[in-house]
Design a binder for these strands. Sequence first.
DNA 1: ATAAAATGTAAACTTTAGTTGTCATTTTGT
DNA 2: ACAAAATGACAACTAAAGTTTACATTTTAT
Lengths: 66, 66
Amino acid sequence: MLKNSVRELRARYRLTQQDLAEKIEVSRQTIGLIEKGDYAPSITLALKMAKVFQVPVEQIFYLEGE
Amino acid sequence: MLKNSVRELRARYRLTQQDLAEKIEVSRQTIGLIEKGDYAPSITLALKMAKVFQVPVEQIFYLEGE
DNA sequence: ATAAAATGTAAACTTTAGTTGTCATTTTGT
DNA sequence: ACAAAATGACAACTAAAGTTTACATTTTAT
């Protein structure tokens, strides 16, 4: 099962969902749905996010319970 | 633009597309299309692949030319 | 307390990931 | 050289990502 720490990282950088959305070129709603855990984004989105937060992808998205 | 080194890693482990497909639970065709660069897989697929190859996701998938 | 900004949510939609089946071509092993 | 295994490719399809619009609720700042 896929989990993520987008909300925490976003808080650390004091970005709104809108801010983050713009930086990685997706809609605000998409950020919301990802934070909620509603779906597994594309690797492209994940890589862009990792760049914004300056952490490895694995530190944002990870499989829990295999 | 998204690039990847799936083919190289798969060769290193001497796995067929079919083998890899089974390990990460996708179809053989999907592996072929990813190697060809036809599309950006989900982060879930990428994480599973990273596990198989025992490398960070960034070593498999990366954005080239921003 | 109030207004503005931020977030949650939902429906209807478009786009793209991923599947299944099938056949042709290439590679590998004997 | 030959057969078997592996890959390429394509069409038609299904499933899921991601968008847009719109409105309700919550948070934040003054």
